[in-house]
Amino acid sequence: MLPIEYYLWFAAALFAIGVAGVLLRRNVIIVFMSIELMLNAVNVTFIAFSRQMNNIDGQIFVFFVMTLAAAEVAVGLAIIVAMYRNKKSINVQDMNLLKW
């Protein structure tokens, strides 16, 4: 097996791309996709350490992260559709109802 550092570096790069996507893009669907990228980067780290430590708990955690991601996407996309119905826009900067 490859040394675990390769997997950690790869996960860090993927996570950074996800963060950049959340900060740079204004399309809320793309922001959601970037959040999925970050979740997946963390999953890679979990599985790499699970393999390294010969311990299955990390993989169980990844299973729960996937469950959470599915729930999050379902609710989040429903919110996006509801917002689009009211505002006719999926730009993040138009969603400022709660802004003080």
């Binding site: 490859l2 599985i47 993989q59 991601a69």
Partner: peptide, 15 residues
């Protein structure tokens, strides 16, 4: 490659 076979399949099916 990390021998997480179940999660690889779940990744494809769910994600």
């Amino acid at each position: 490659l990390l021998e997480a076979y179940f999660l690889a399949v779940v990744q494809i099916i769910i994600y």
